[in-house]
Design a protein around this nucleic acid. Sequence first.
DNA 1: TCTTTAGTAATGGTCGAACCATTTAACTCC
DNA 2: GGAGTTAAATGGTTCGACCATTACTAAAGA
Lengths: 257, 257
Amino acid sequence: MIRMFRAAKQNRIFQDVVEQIEKAIVDGKLQAGDTLPSERDLKELFQTSRGTLREALRVLEQKGLIEIKLGVGGGSVVKAAPMQQVCDSLDLLVRFQQISLVHLAEFREGIEGIVAATACGRATRRDIAALEKLVEKARSYVAKGVSQSRRFVEIDKQIHQALARITGNPMYIVIHQMVHDNIQRYYERFLPWTEAMLQENFDDLYNIVAFVKKGDAEQASDLARRHVQRFSEHMMENEAGKTALPKIFDGQAQPSQ
Amino acid sequence: MIRMFRAAKQNRIFQDVVEQIEKAIVDGKLQAGDTLPSERDLKELFQTSRGTLREALRVLEQKGLIEIKLGVGGGSVVKAAPMQQVCDSLDLLVRFQQISLVHLAEFREGIEGIVAATACGRATRRDIAALEKLVEKARSYVAKGVSQSRRFVEIDKQIHQALARITGNPMYIVIHQMVHDNIQRYYERFLPWTEAMLQENFDDLYNIVAFVKKGDAEQASDLARRHVQRFSEHMMENEAGKTALPKIFDGQAQPSQ
DNA sequence: TCTTTAGTAATGGTCGAACCATTTAACTCC
DNA sequence: GGAGTTAAATGGTTCGACCATTACTAAAGA
């Protein structure tokens, strides 16, 4: 009932402009890459002022539907699917401290588990080959020690993203990316890498890929979850992690209804 | 690397205003319910024009951070956690047909499974009592037949939300709500209820709660997943669902990277 | 002829002042 | 004391002007 009707602030002209353009995009009348007329032309099309029109464009830009370029030949370009917006909106919620690191980590555990299990049944030979190539890359960085930990983390992310992509379900891709990015921000700040951790994590990746290759969903899923858990455990062991951000670890914070 | 730096369009003044206000809100210097100064005051605080300031307010409003009220005593009021925005952004993605119903349903399956399993270990006696109360409410609506299916669906949602809340992890709550709302919109349009379906779904709910009460995570999880699957199956069987929206069911659409 | 450079026009970004529409609160009148 | 009226504050809109950036073009120079 709550979401059946939208606010009826029809006095707001820019809102009407937003809805018209949004509808045109969603209906496919405006395709990604298309350029809208200039602000001065649009203001005449919509019979409004430039200020009001610009407020509408601001909203569309924020929604991720258009991108605005400067200079001659610039203007409003229709963007592809606004996937980034989903991430950003959740980003904001996390920064609101409504969601702590333990919450994120627990959630990621579940997601990684499902992704790994789902990927098991859907990975093609090419997928496996790509995964193994990434694993080899990771191995080379691990061999070079903690100085290359940044590169290793990058490959680690790519492997997880590849798994999400293999599922063929964009929901996993977008949700995974969002959680990973948010959680990684904490790890970068409070979790210094050691040789042992690097090796341990590489082994996880290697084995996860191996299980996916074998098609062993249960083991792949379990290991993927364990893989995420290890980070939380290291964070707990780490002095910086415990002392610097106690709030992050306070757990069961209730969300505001 | 991609998400480490933000676009450096510092020529855009309104962006700077957005960031300053957003930071103040996220840092807690501005609490939910606080009212910002009037546009005419803000424009002086930020040393900018009213038009530019309004563009900033438009962005903040779109982000769900503020709500704007008219008339004397009106102005920009800081809102609580912008949970609705997460739903809206996904809604847009779905309408972009980047995410189909099968994608949503599969994802929801995983989430409901994890939520049910996690809730098993965390439900207090009060939680169980509240769940059972909801189940009894659902039973009464089922008894009244399809005429009360709308009410039943509402209770169904409340039960799932209650389970998500029991986990104590706000990630589950917000993600669940986002997926549920989006998916329910399809079901409402293309899935007419029958007596048998009502009964079947009630039985699911009854048993899920029973398993949670027993603390049987595995069975609760399996049944919760099965519960979601049933909807997809009914959608498949249903002529309206198959013919009205074939595109929704085309499955493996690849996201634009 | 090719390259460099200066110029020019289109376009988004900003500014200021004015007016309109809505809402609240105070005030007047009965 | 209640109902209607008025006034002021505030967001919404409009207009006109100017600035900053950019791509294209033509002129100048090698």
